[in-house]
Design a protein around this nucleic acid. Sequence first.
DNA 1: CATTGTGAACGCCTTCACAGCC
DNA 2: GGCTGTGAAGGCGTTCACAATG
Lengths: 225, 225
Amino acid sequence: MAERYARRIPEPTVVRLPLYQRVLLELSADGIPTVSSAELANAAGVNAAKVRKDLSHLGTYGTPGTGYDVNYLLGQVRHELGLDQEWEVVIVGIGNLGHALAHSQRFSTQNFRTVALFDVDPAKIGKLVDEMPVRHISELEEVITDASRAIGVIACPASAAQDVCNRLVGAGIGAILNFSPAILTVALPVLLRQVDFSVELQALAFYIVHPEATVGSEAESQPPP
Amino acid sequence: MAERYARRIPEPTVVRLPLYQRVLLELSADGIPTVSSAELANAAGVNAAKVRKDLSHLGTYGTPGTGYDVNYLLGQVRHELGLDQEWEVVIVGIGNLGHALAHSQRFSTQNFRTVALFDVDPAKIGKLVDEMPVRHISELEEVITDASRAIGVIACPASAAQDVCNRLVGAGIGAILNFSPAILTVALPVLLRQVDFSVELQALAFYIVHPEATVGSEAESQPPP
DNA sequence: CATTGTGAACGCCTTCACAGCC
DNA sequence: GGCTGTGAAGGCGTTCACAATG
């Protein structure tokens, strides 16, 4: 089946697809054959209209009166997310966080495979983490095979992040996930996403200080009969 | 100076404030007295109009023709984020990630102070991590003093996350930062934010598979003379 | 004269609501 | 009858562009 052409999927939808995927995975494991948008919405913590609109971007996979076939929809969502192929991940910066990421089940499941660990600290190089040797960053280019389809994870201090980023880009990496609090600059064709713990913490503090600014919960509640 | 009343700040702005705060901190450390919205925007990786609109939500702190006074604006932003007071953080789940977070400089700087570590694993309890003993979750209530102003960090496996969440809410915690991939349900008055590595990874994979869906970079480029 | 603050225009996502289908 | 898919409406944040200002 060929790709449908050029439907652009809104980025908020892209970020919710992994949620749906996870819920569908559980439903599938439980042997549940179909879900309605309302059930899926409830499990994912969003509302039903959003689920239907989101899924409509992928195609017409639902059955009126019945809902969605769990396994079929799961396959479609996984295909859309590229989870039916394998992704190589390299982690740069094997401090506490890099260590945690390297161990993480979540990185290794879902067809993301950590293929290399890098650092600059001579004391760390050569050590085995999760049965993988920690290498010096300079070996980056040698280790990655299909760089344009590999994902680089930056878990080093902010001060080194831009340099690491440049090296990753230089090696032709396709996408970067940056866990450092540095604001990185990359040439446009390289994908870049940011995960920043302290931003989340500070946002929480803001909303504690400003309860009136809190936005309502998303999840749907039972409407009165 | 009393709070201005009931200006609601959009959540995208709230999330950008920590970015500005960080940039301003650096500028201040470098002894730079003023910034324009364009400079601040460039350093934060957003555009100038957004910076001005964001800051206008806090008040009228800029000077036409000059820009913003770095130290004054920094103080205002920090006040708005509640960073001029201290925040107690408890971490639940001292696996690799919890360990990393406990060690993290970022959690301890910025007036976020980790005050307790919890787990259920008897093998971990009593161990010292960062000079702090790991306690059993059952001690949660005893350890937290002003729970409503404390932030609970969930770093345990997804399977235990809802239970931990319930305990945190039961102890009267004010806000929760959830690093597990579980979708949590809480009573409304409790603030909840989610950080999910695998979602980010899957989003990156999506955009590698669908280059045409990529949204353009935010940063401003030099306009031609 | 550089730069802010902000109404207004715009674009985009969310929500509604219902026709259509099983 | 239950539920999907979707046009239309609505809401909200972003961007524009310019009058106001030190």
